[in-house]
């Protein structure tokens, strides 16, 4: 390093801190066509953007859950460092079990936090991004929504429900104390660019700091 007075200084990023993020994606039949195509393109963009920055690629961890088929929640990508993340292909087929998917997301987050703690790894508060163009179809989704809001209140997780055109916001709103945001058109690309930038910001944030996230250009106000 010749641009400073002190020669030969090397900066190694020795922090094992992790920033976990779960994507809960609606893979129901109503997403078929352009919405699912745009969603998958957005996921590939997310993969690329997260890998562009070395620190982000090392610190951010992702888990992808699909809600679809016959009220089934399935893990498409289990916890993986962003540097090793390969965007999965999400298929649009079946119903919209958002309750089961969010329940699975919270369980996986609890397991991962326990694993971090057992291995002495520090982590930032986990995020869940819920994306849907519909409303939950599974039994008992309301109790899961209660669990989500309770987890948020106890500062265990940060949840962002995001509704695509056609979503029922009255129900999506119930998965977070902040309510849901509406995606402008099919701007999945903008959404996932925002997510990668937000993860990059959070992954190098410091205690007590109020993190200023990038502007949500991809959202519009529901009236």
């Amino acid at each position: 390093m010749s641009d400073t007075l002190i020669p030969d200084v090397v900066f190694n990023d020795n922090n094992s801190q992790r920033t976990p993020c779960v994507l809960v994606l609606d893979g129901s039949s109503s997403m078929f066509g352009e919405p699912i195509r745009q969603l998958n393109e957005g996921l590939r963009l997310l993969e690329q953007a997260l890998k562009e920055d070395a620190s982000t690629a090392m610190r951010v961890q992702l888990l992808v859950i699909r809600a679809g088929n016959h009220d089934q929640a399935e893990v498409l990508t289990d916890w993986v460092d962003a540097m090793d993340f390969n965007a999965p292909e999400v298929f649009a087929n079946g119903t919209t079990p958002l309750g089961a998917a969010m329940n699975l997301a919270l369980d996986k987050i609890e397991d991962q936090k326990a694993a971090y703690d057992a291995n002495g790894i520090s982590s930032t508060r986990p995020w869940i991004i819920l994306i849907s163009d519909g409303a939950p179809t599974d039994f008992d989704w309301e109790s899961v929504a209660d669990r989500c809001r309770h987890a948020e209140q106890n500062r265990k997780v940060v949840i962002f429900p995001i509704g695509v055109e056609g979503a029922t916001f009255e129900t999506l709103n119930q998965f977070s104390n902040k309510g849901a945001k509406k995606l402008k058109g099919l701007q999945f690309r903008e959404l996932f660019v925002w997510l990668s930038r937000s993860m990059a910001t959070v992954s190098v944030s410091s205690p007590g700091e109020k993190v200023q996230l990038p502007a949500t250009d991809w959202s519009e106000v529901e009236v």
């Binding site: 390093m1 641009d3 400073t4 007075l5 002190i6 200084v9 900066f11 990023d13 922090n15 920055d53 070395a54 620190s55 910001t201 190098v204 944030s205 410091s206 700091e209």
Partner: peptide, 19 residues
């Protein structure tokens, strides 16, 4: 002091932590 300030404000340091 000048050298230390340079090092701690270096782009590589900021890349690792914004704090």
């Amino acid at each position: 002091v000048v050298a230390l300030k340079q090092i701690l404000d270096h782009a590589n340091a900021r890349r690792i932590s914004g704090d």
